[in-house]
Design a protein around this nucleic acid. Structure first.
Lengths: 278, 278
DNA sequence: AAACACAAGATTGGATATCAATCAACGATT
DNA sequence: AATCGTTGATTGATATCCAATCTTGTGTTT
């Protein structure tokens, strides 16, 4: 088993990318040490790991907070992600064998089936996973780690940011990228990757609370005992100092089509972030 | 001022990229805590930072060691570096203004002058810096940090690895890349970057001690009091459990042309790693 | 003499208590 | 009401202690 600080860092990372801990949220050492029932020092080590990963920022004598990237940094992260995925695409177009293409197609197909069967949650997870699989096929662990870190940070961005346009015409991008690459149309594939990410960034609007704020105790509860993950029970939201609109249940990056606290008339299901690039 | 663990992590990083702490070197907590005169916990936090950076590896209940990448990992690091620099090249060929090209040319010129005047040390530093400047011109801090981390890891590789061929025909690569990019010949520039790095990796031979092993106390002495850097005094090496050849003063990534244990007839000065890609 | 087993020592991972420095909030004073 | 100082809370860091684990050395057995 790994070190305890690593375990806690992993849990915190998971809670952040699950949008349970939103940007700006204070990560107090004492509070976390009581939640995890460890000493403050272990928590500090975990927070150092998170800060090195870009998911938290530590201000001297003030403490650690979930990172709150600026719009500038958001664009930089997406630029970097684009650069990495374009580079991987170029490598794969040369080196990838039939088995690799089959794996990509199979993954796309699984996502398509999930969408068809209305399992939005699974579709969302698969949509995220596609990029990871894509980079894994480069067989470069260093690159995988860099990419995974960037993906985590884009996921973080989605807590801070809300998309304001229709994503439907981006849903098939994965499939199209695979098609283009396998046909050797590298340039077009790279352009598509770029367009994909650029479109997403352009749709971003900052300074809006998308996910509700929870106290760390509430946010971390599902991860503590039973090692429950994906289908973790959602704790009821307590309006601590919620600054945003009251809407938006903090889910496990599972998009539920506009599930309001008062689920009366759900709005257009098209303004969703299903199948986002990250 | 930053936290003390960050300061210590920086010093250790510097010592590693200066080849004073070689791969595999044990980084004992007690030993380091006495050297830096801090508590063990601060050292642990610094080691966590180094491990997150890929410069150290921590084995549970065994301690931290300077990372000793495999040949496989070495190639992956160079592949990733190539990917990043090619991507940046593509961006720069579109977006870079005259001032940017001028800065690159000026940097190349400075290195050329250093070479001409026989200042190999300066030339080496400038050669490393070129890549950093190159990426900085992308104006993407996220990308800069990723690249800087990769560069640190390539520098680490050079402690473990020795080049076995003539580097002379790689010396002007920087200049040629700038030329090609400014003329819009992006494809050629990217190929040159790739060729450059591939040639370096092909020349690598592992399992050979290039730099002498020092105890951490000796290795870190120059960084402690007067904040001395570059021209730090070289502590005499004490043959603690030296496994490599007895010679090879650990310099600040300044290559000493084939300085053998019996430095009589130094071999061809062409077999140097001046102007290496990292 | 070689191989194995076991015990002692050393090192790491972690907990706890404590202290100084700094920040934030609060209240008193003008 | 605005400013200034005080108090409380939190962080950064240290020292000490303890358990778990790894290493080493010794001793025994074959």
């Amino acid at each position: 088993m790994s070190s305890r600080s690593q375990t806690i860092a992993d849990i915190l990372t998971r809670a952040i990318i699950d949008h349970r801990l939103v940007p700006g949220c204070k990560l107090g050492e004492r509070e976390l040490s009581e939640i995890f029932d460890v000493s403050r020092i272990v928590v500090r080590q975990a927070l150092i790991r998170l800060a090195d990963d870009g998911l938290a920022q530590i201000e001297r004598n003030r403490g650690a907070f979930v990172a709150k990237p600026s719009m500038q940094e958001a664009m930089e992260i997406y630029d970097a992600l684009t650069l990495v995925e374009q580079g991987v695409a170029a490598q794969l177009s040369d080196r990838l064998g039939p088995a690799g293409w089959a794996e990509l197609r199979q993954h796309v197909e699984r996502q398509r089936q999930a969408v068809a069967s209305g399992n939005d949650a699974l579709a969302d997870v698969l949509g995220q996973e596609f990029h990871t699989v894509f980079v894994r096929l480069s067989r470069n662990k260093v690159m995988q780690e860099i990419h995974a870190q960037l993906v985590r940070r884009t996921t973080l961005l989605r807590s801070l940011i809300t998309a304001d346009f229709d994503y439907c015409n981006l849903l098939d991008d994965h499939s199209r990228v695979v098609d283009l690459l396998e046909k050797g149309r590298l340039k077009q594939a790279m352009d598509l990757i770029d367009t994909h990410h650029r479109a997403v960034v352009r749709g971003y609007i900052m300074d809006r609370e998308v996910y509700a704020e929870m106290t760390p105790a509430e946010a971390l509860a599902p991860y503590l005992d039973g090692k429950a993950d994906g289908a973790a029970p959602i704790a009821p939201r307590k309006p601590a100092k919620s600054s945003g609109n009251g809407d938006g249940t903090a889910h496990v990056h599972v998009h539920l089509p506009k599930q309001d606290p008062a689920p009366k008339s759900r709005t257009s299901a098209k303004k969703t972030n299903r199948g986002l690039p990250a």
